[in-house]
Design a protein around this nucleic acid. Structure first.
Lengths: 166, 166
DNA sequence: GCATAATAGACAGGTACCTGACCAAAGCTA
DNA sequence: TAGCTTTGGTCAGGTACCTGTCTATTATGC
């Protein structure tokens, strides 16, 4: 891994982002499997933090998680089939249904949230709280600036201004 | 985008990484299209910096770009079909062939490399050289530490220790 | 020098995203 | 209340990754 290479040869930021995101996803997978929820795929764990007790529309889930509604619908399908979620009619709007947690879904919530915490904790230990905080802050700030500078990007980055529920 | 939110609500690092990587990919796409190479898909641009004049095996390309050989083989297929690359027999090893640039491939090299430069330059302007440099450094360092701490991860992160040719 | 192990690549198939087209229910406008 | 627009969701299809398995060729051990 040669960490003391001469002035850390400039790798593409794109490569670094991709590699780190992959490590994160693999970590989520391992953490969920360890907690006994091997049937939740890493990409689907992102749903749980955003489902409030009263239910939520797929559209809103998609915005909060920063994906398209089709992508979120697919995750919800998976989790519904596995018995973690169900879709109930929306009394206020006949077009949409509300996604709610089942009993089983409420049981995994802590594990699903903890999977992300575990990785970020490990990464904090691998660097330092200051460095990890700085990384988080820099990513957040850069994304904010990109959104300010480009209306199209702002639409894609809506989740930044509208974070989760817990 | 509400950049002055209270202490930037803690979004998942995973979300930030994913969003930023998506912005990068979209930027690459736009930059290539502008340079007249709309037939190079953003994911395939990563091949060009790693093809030396004497040719290179698909296996080595995959390691340098941080993907599996199947993924790289697919990119090479695409670029070969589009006339940017070709595969020639390897005089030293009958199992493998060497990927080399065609005349057309040599012509796109600057544009392909420039696409990444353009985005990193824009992002540097959106923040500051110090912040952008810090972000790059932090990502690189964290990945290095992850590799040191976990042999499996080290294998996946081989590209860190073996950067490109230009 | 021949059997076995390792390696390069191809083939099949799956996941997580994406875009575009479409339909049905709601909300507006008149 | 008839017609138009907007919105929530689905369907179809594409890209960029992934794993696992297979074949052909080369390297190795006795």
């Amino acid at each position: 891994m040669n960490p003391d290479s001469p002035a850390e040869k400039r790798l593409r930021l794109s490569l670094l982002l991709r590699l780190l995101h992959r490590e994160y996803a693999l970590g989520i997978e391992a953490s969920l499997a360890e907690a006994g929820f091997g049937d939740i795929r890493p990409g689907d764990a992102k749903v749980f933090p955003f489902v409030p007790p009263e239910g939520v529309q797929v559209r809103d889930l998609a915005i909060r998680a920063g994906v398209r509604k089709q992508t979120m619908a697919q995750s919800v399908d998976q989790l519904e089939r596995a018995g973690y979620l169900e879709r109930v009619p929306n009394p206020r709007d006949g077009r949409s249904r509300l996604v709610v947690l089942t009993g089983r879904g409420r049981a995994v919530r802590p594990a699903a949230a903890g999977a992300g915490d575990a990785i970020e904790r490990r990464w904090t230990e691998l660097t330092s709280p200051e460095e990890f905080g700085a990384l988080h802050g820099l990513l957040h700030r850069l994304l904010g600036r990109i959104g300010e500078a480009d209306p199209d990007a702002a639409a894609r980055l809506a989740s930044l201004g509208d974070s989760g529920l817990d």
